[in-house]
Design a protein around this nucleic acid. Structure first.
Lengths: 125, 125
DNA sequence: AACCTTCATAGACAGTCATCGATGCAGGGA
DNA sequence: TCCCTGCATCGATGACTGTCTATGAAGGTT
């Protein structure tokens, strides 16, 4: 298993600019349809209580990595369901995975979260 | 029509703390299920290309207010569909509306966007 | 090789959502 | 009063999604 498999999110990063610090805020100028579609995918990934808790669990973990087995045991859901949610987050570019032996570890992609946060910041003007 | 009708979002603000500046980041500690459900509603509202463009159009408008008629004409969608999306954003607490004469004007709720942005910021630690 | 554990994938199904046309309601003008 | 405009609501429908069970694939152990 590769650490990062085809993040569909990168296309959006290219559209809005490679440097997250200079990209325009969402509300500074109207975004085009392509950017909106890509961005919506990321927000949609965060638009589920289970996935939000997954992100939170991963991010809050000391060391930044969490084994899937720990995530599965934290919910009252089946293992395939958790695996499905992790896949959604992965394809949104918000998390990435790495296999070490029998276990698969997930960690956040801070740049992705920061990019979203930057987009939402409303300029004082 | 009232300017702000029952923002379901306020409950979440109460949960995560009234001051957006001191609320813990999403990834600093695991969030509880109630907070996750409320937060997910906001992200879900942003998880649609049309609604993202609506937020962008409203926020980018000089003066901060946009008439619904201008929003409707910006999309290749029916007026009821746009009205539906505006309702979703309104119930998420992201925008608010005001009727003046025949027209209804929408504007952003910057505090709501800033709160989301703050939650997504990943601490350097 | 045989088996176990961990995780992902496939397929099915019920619930939700985005969209539409039709309709209702509020405000303004003739 | 009557009608027109702007916007919201209703009901229907096709598409998508979250969840499950069953199964497959990868890795480790004996």
């Amino acid at each position: 298993m590769s650490i990062q498999r085809v993040p569909a999110d990168l296309a959006i990063i290219a559209v809005t600019g490679p440097d997250a610090c200079v990209q325009p805020a969402l509300v500074s100028e109207p975004i085009d349809e392509v950017s909106a579609a890509g961005l919506a995918q990321v927000f949609k990934a965060l638009g589920d209580p289970v996935r939000l808790r997954l992100v939170s669990l991963i991010g809050a973990r000391q060391g930044g990595e969490v084994c899937v087995c720990d995530l599965t045991s934290a919910f009252d859901l089946s293992q395939p369901t958790i695996s499905h949610h992790l896949k959604v987050l992965r394809e949104a570019g918000l998390i990435e995975s790495e296999r070490r032996g029998t276990w698969v570890y997930y960690r956040l992609v801070p740049a992705a979260l920061d990019r979203i946060a930057g987009l939402l910041s409303v300029p004082v003007g």
